[in-house]
């Protein structure tokens, strides 16, 4: 049994986000981190490894520096890493991204009791589409928004969150799960893990490696294979600065209530 976890390196959007004058993001000035939900997926995989001794393989598609992120995840306890990287893959929307990641998973090899895990959503593109689209391309059943995962034999039981409650879903392996932060608390790297990380296998899949997979086709990958196009991107304007009321006492509150009443807001 093995678990393949898809992880993405993303700019840290929680800190200061720099925007270029033309409305694009100044990525160079931003820190990169491992996408937060993906760390929950990694942790879920490592927990299953603790229980069953299964293998954990992490996969990312991205530019070569993403290797550093993969080493960190090996240091947390994953066994093998794959970096999917090629110029041909650049500019992919979620359709094309999932097409490429699915072919990488085919290449790693998916067996009867394997599980693919993704984060629910990446904090840069913010679409939450790649997980379900990989599942479709690999013809796997999917369960998204996983908040609990229990494995017994080849059956997995997942607590799947809804806005107004949850569902308990049973699914057989192989399958794909997308993970949310409620699932667990990701562990840190251990000192021994950091040492071992450098001797663990790290493979690079480039265009040559994957090109014979039927999913890889000039019409389905990269910019040309992406059904969506970005027409424009822009930054939202700041809302016009409001009024700072003077003081913070009863008089201030009375004045505010008066203004609201006058404008028929209350």
């Amino acid at each position: 049994m093995k678990i393949i976890v898809c992880v993405k390196q993303v700019p840290d959007t929680s800190g200061k986000v720099a925007v270029n004058p033309d409305g694009t993001l100044d990525r160079a000035s931003m820190q990169t981190i491992t996408n937060p939900d993906d760390l929950n997926a990694v942790e879920a995989a490592l927990k299953l490894k603790d229980e069953t001794g299964c293998k954990v393989v992490v996969v990312t598609m991205g530019p070569p520096p993403a290797e550093g992120m993969l080493r960190e995840i090996l240091a947390r306890g994953a066994d093998e890493a794959v970096l999917v990287s090629a110029r041909e893959f650049g500019g992919s929307d979620t359709y094309a991204t999932s097409q490429i990641l699915a072919s990488a998973i085919n290449r790693i090899g998916l067996e009867q009791d394997d599980v693919v895990m993704c984060g629910r959503q990446a904090i840069d593109g913010d679409t939450a589409q790649v997980g379900p689209q990989i599942a479709e391309k690999l013809h796997l059943p999917q369960v998204t928004y996983a908040a609990e995962i229990h494995k017994a034999g080849n059956a997995i039981t997942v607590k799947r969150m809804l806005e107004d409650g949850y569902m308990t879903i049973k699914v057989k392996t192989p399958c794909l799960l997308t993970c949310i932060k409620e699932l667990n608390e990701p562990r840190y790297m251990s000192v021994s893990g950091v040492f071992e990380a450098y001797s663990k296998p790290m493979e690079v899949f480039n265009y040559e490696t994957l090109k014979d997979d039927p999913l890889i086709d000039p019409t389905t990958i990269g910019l040309k294979g992406s059904p969506t196009n970005i027409l424009t991107s822009f930054t939202p304007p700041l809302k016009g600065a409001g009024v700072m009321l003077e003081g913070a006492d009863k008089e201030t509150c009375d004045k505010l209530a008066g203004l609201l009443a006058k404008k028929h807001i209350i």
Partner: peptide, 9 residues
């Protein structure tokens, strides 16, 4: 990007 950027697709 967490609301920092809007895009029309």
């Amino acid at each position: 990007f967490g609301g920092h950027l809007m895009a029309t697709i």
